[in-house]
Design a protein around this nucleic acid. Sequence first.
DNA 1: GGTGTGATCGTA
DNA 2: ACGATCACACCA
Length: 206
Amino acid sequence: MPVRSRALPRSFFARDSRVLAPELLNKVLVRRPIGEPAGEATVPLLAARIVEVEAYCGAEDAGSHAYRGQTARNATMFGPAGHLYVYFTYGMHWCANAVAGEPGTASAVLLRAAAPLEGLDVMRARRPKARRDRDLLSGPAKLCAAFGITGALDAADLTKGELRILDDGTPPPAVPLVTTRIGLAAGKGDEHPWRFGVSADPNLSR
DNA sequence: GGTGTGATCGTA
DNA sequence: ACGATCACACCA
């Protein structure tokens, strides 16, 4: 991790989720030890380079949890950008998003896959079923499991908390992979090309 | 490489 | 009921 890595400011997140999403590719998700001071030089406990994301667009997006308005579950998405929206799905999995846009827009970017950089031993211990390291973070629920992200981290501030997204100087891909989003029912937003990835990266979800 | 299926529970 | 999923079984 280069010394000049720095946490992304809130202004970085406060944009349309479809603009923010590809900009998050090649940024570094880090989790620092609990209670560790927020110095820039601290070695993170866990670090991974984001290689796959999806944009969700609130009230105008049938695929978004916010499509039918605010509830207790999705309230974080209606708040300020730069916070983490964590939800539980399929009765067993947690998934994490970076809240985007202006307050009230309820847009977010789902973190779908990442390439492990640091803390591989911790990630392997949390994901004993992953046979290869490229499977540690190759899906939104896998990523949360490996990073220990649960509902307890919903609404965490990504700009200054124990969980952050850093810019280490690696630019996003000039030409990202762009496809429709995964797991949406027909007519429920599946037509929008709002999934973005680092082409041919081995850590992409299946 | 691909497809099919069961697990398991909060939310609407 | 159904889901912004995963892992395993199987076939190729």
